[in-house]
């Protein structure tokens, strides 16, 4: 397994380097930050002075190398806007984003697993049919739309839950659902088809022939098999949550990395954008690696390095 793990680690490192180059180039294509930092009537000499101080007058590849070298030791420079280390700004916001992404993922899995299992067990029954309708709805509704809809219904019309903010669990509900909504459909399908396969396997037939109660057959012996394909995808979904968080955090005024980066983009606050995106890609890679590990926990054939 270690060889496999090291290979995945190397792939992860390459992905992060790739992401850093892309975000570095794109952010610099988006416009000149100097114009946002200085008053409109600033003299040219002052503009040149600031540009030199920030290192923005050097060739792009030199800027990147300096950036990469500093990034390696965790120095992303100071935020142009907040005059504090960009990394610290991101790290401060990170727990809120992880909290949201985890809850979003939890929501999607908590819906997808039982619905997927029951759709497979009662194939063609009413759960299966309703599940299919929801799957279609889920795919047709992007996160921002679900978010706005939820705010409209549960915050404004019914006044059950707050529309924004961070701190209590009630403020977490709507953003977590908006974030977790989209992957529910795909996850349900994964669980459903995996369950259908497993329920038709010889070992389940043997289990039945030996009198195992149906409840255990479904929720223990079949589900652990069916969980393997979902688990392999969880890293991808967690990463998708991090991506989706950029939109959802902005809608719900959630003080996470996503909203911070979005604001930094509008302010052309390069260090914060770079630190935020790079950090997200590190999380992305790490969540995939964690999944490779947990995959082994669930599937003994992988754990034992077959």
């Amino acid at each position: 397994m270690s060889g496999f793990f090291i290979r995945r680690l190397m792939q992860g490192v390459i992905s992060i380097i790739g992401a850093s180059i892309i975000i570095f180039v794109i952010s610099r294509l988006s416009g000149d930050p100097i114009l946002m930092l200085l008053p409109n009537d600033a003299p040219t000499s002052m503009i040149e002075e600031t540009r030199r101080n920030l290192g923005l007058n050097r060739p792009l590849w030199v800027q990147y190398l300096i950036f990469a070298q500093n990034a390696l030791v965790g120095d992303f420079g100071n935020s142009y806007r907040w005059k504090m280390p960009a990394l610290k700004l991101i790290l401060d916001r990170l727990p809120a984003t992880i909290e949201l992404a985890m809850c979003g993922l939890l929501f999607s899995v908590a819906v997808a697993v039982p619905v997927g299992v029951m759709s497979a067990v009662h194939r063609g029954g009413w759960i299966d049919r309703i599940g299919r309708v929801f799957a279609m709805l889920g795919q047709a509704m992007p996160a921002f739309w679900v978010g706005l809809l939820l705010i409209l219904v549960f915050a404004i019309k019914l006044n059950w839950l707050p529309a924004f903010g961070h701190g209590s669990w009630s403020q977490l509900v709507l953003p977590a659902i908006s974030l977790g909504w989209y992957p529910v459909a795909a996850q349900t399908r994964i669980v459903r088809s995996a369950m259908l396969d497993v329920l038709d396997s010889d070992h389940i037939r043997l289990s039945r022939a030996l009198g195992t109660p149906e409840r255990l057959i479904i929720w223990k012996y079949a589900l652990r098999n069916a969980a393997v394909p979902l688990l392999t995808m969880l890293g991808v979904y967690f990463a998708a949550m991090l991506g989706g968080a950029f939109v959802v955090e902005t809608i719900f005024a959630w003080p996470g990395v996503g909203r911070t980066v979005v604001e930094a983009v509008f302010a052309r606050d390069f260090p914060v954008v770079q630190a935020g995106v790079l950090f997200t890609s590190v999380l992305f890679v790490m969540s995939n690696l964690l999944v490779d590990l947990s995959y082994g926990l669930v599937d003994p054939r992988i754990r034992n390095g077959r």
Partner: peptide, 20 residues
């Protein structure tokens, strides 16, 4: 099932649950 009548299936390679 399993108590008074037990059945052994055809293929031992697939008759056991791989994840237990």
């Amino acid at each position: 099932r399993g108590r008074k009548i037990a059945m052994i299936m055809q293929d031992p390679m697939t008759s056991l649950n791989p994840v237990f």
